[in-house]
Amino acid sequence: MKKELHIFFTCLMFYTRIPCPKNITHHPDYLNKATRYFPFIGWIVGSISFLAFYVFSFFVSIEAAAILAIIASILTTGAFHEDGFADVCDGFGGGWTKEKILTIMKDSAIGAYGAVGLVLLFLLKFKLLSESISIFQTNNLDFPFLIFLLFVNAHALSRLSAVSIIFTHEYSRDDASSKSKPIAQQYTWKEVFGSFFFGLLPLIVLSYFYHLFILILIPVFLTRFFLARYFQKWIDGYTGDCLGATQQVSEVIIYLSVLILWKFI
């Protein structure tokens, strides 16, 4: 149990800004095993984001509360995944060889592709999230609980989509320049089982209330498949930035899928 707690806190420290015990470090062995808790971090981030939304919804509009919820999630993770998304936009937008793409992604400065990508990402996330919440509210559903499940599912399942690439593809960089490298080198059945358990459980619970929501898995893993294939084609694998981009895109796809399923099926 003590070792599992150490692994969990390693994952929590790596992916969020939440304070952890002082003895927790980025030890490669614990980072390798921390992938089993990555989707569970989505439970935590999603819960914090929902709490911000729920509290502020008493004082401001649904749209404003949704923006504040997104801000809460960004503050919790330190924009960890958004930064990866921006780097991927810059790298794949401005590079035409593996070496050039990796060099651009390693650069800490944000370029035009990254800036435009982030603006469009946040606009989409805000609009889709606020519309999804409005649908639950308008249809007199159990508003707080189902919205809570929506938040947690979006953050957990999108992280499963990202971490699953580790189980099927190779890390792209040949050097040790990225701190994401240790988490991408080894895994066992425990990491695979833990990731899928924590990643799928919120969706299963949500689907209990509206069965068709289980179909969200189809567009999410189609998105994951095509992104992974795209990364493989251009850089022979993935990087930590690619995982962050996959998480962000998958989160948007989840909100979009909820709207489509509710309105048209």
Rank of each mutant, 00 (worst) to 15 (best):
92 F>Y: 00
123 L>P: 00
166 I>K: 15
240 G>W: 00
10 T>S: 05
221 F>W: 14
79 A>L: 12
259 L>T: 09
91 G>V: 00
172 S>C: 02
254 I>W: 15
26 H>D: 13
119 V>F: 12
174 D>G: 07
214 I>G: 10
219 P>Y: 02
17 R>H: 10
213 F>E: 11
10 T>N: 04
64 A>C: 01
235 I>D: 11
203 L>E: 12
165 I>N: 13
240 G>F: 00
94 G>R: 07
107 D>S: 02
182 P>A: 04
215 L>G: 05
222 L>Q: 10
236 D>S: 07
46 G>N: 14
188 T>Y: 09
151 F>M: 10
77 T>C: 13
185 Q>E: 11
14 F>D: 11
73 S>W: 03
93 G>Q: 09
76 T>V: 07
185 Q>W: 01
228 A>S: 15
206 L>A: 14
179 K>W: 08
67 I>Y: 11
60 V>C: 10
80 F>A: 00
253 I>A: 12
51 L>A: 12
5 L>H: 04
122 F>T: 05
169 H>C: 06
179 K>C: 06
28 P>G: 00
186 Q>D: 10
195 S>M: 02
187 Y>D: 14
210 Y>P: 00
95 G>Q: 03
11 C>E: 05
126 F>D: 10
42 G>H: 11
157 L>T: 02
207 S>V: 01
173 R>F: 06
235 I>T: 13
81 H>W: 03
140 N>D: 12
127 K>A: 01
30 Y>M: 10
120 L>G: 04
227 L>M: 13
128 L>E: 14
229 R>W: 13
59 F>T: 00
136 F>T: 05
56 F>K: 05
72 A>W: 11
242 C>I: 07
230 Y>K: 13
143 F>H: 13
175 D>W: 07
244 G>E: 04
173 R>I: 01
127 K>I: 01
75 L>H: 13
33 K>E: 08
5 L>N: 04
243 L>H: 11
111 G>R: 09
78 G>Y: 10
91 G>P: 04
46 G>T: 05
21 P>S: 07
40 F>I: 06
33 K>L: 05
2 K>H: 15
182 P>K: 11
95 G>D: 03
250 S>R: 04
41 I>F: 12
248 Q>E: 02
221 F>I: 08
164 S>L: 15
219 P>C: 02
206 L>N: 08
186 Q>K: 15
235 I>L: 14
216 I>D: 09
71 I>A: 02
82 E>I: 00
224 R>Q: 14
69 A>F: 01
192 V>R: 15
54 Y>S: 06
190 K>E: 15
22 K>D: 15
126 F>L: 12
20 C>F: 09
132 S>M: 01
227 L>F: 01
28 P>W: 05
120 L>K: 06
78 G>R: 12
244 G>R: 03
142 D>A: 05
77 T>I: 06
25 T>Y: 15
52 A>L: 05
43 W>G: 12
263 K>Y: 14
194 G>T: 04
192 V>W: 09
3 K>E: 07
25 T>L: 14
24 I>L: 12
186 Q>E: 13
35 T>Q: 08
33 K>M: 04
55 V>F: 00
215 L>C: 07
243 L>D: 09
90 D>N: 06
126 F>A: 06
230 Y>M: 13
200 L>G: 14
226 F>I: 06
101 I>P: 06
238 Y>N: 14
145 F>H: 13
188 T>L: 09
85 F>M: 08
194 G>K: 08
127 K>F: 03
136 F>A: 03
19 P>R: 11
11 C>A: 12
33 K>W: 03
96 W>G: 15
222 L>R: 12
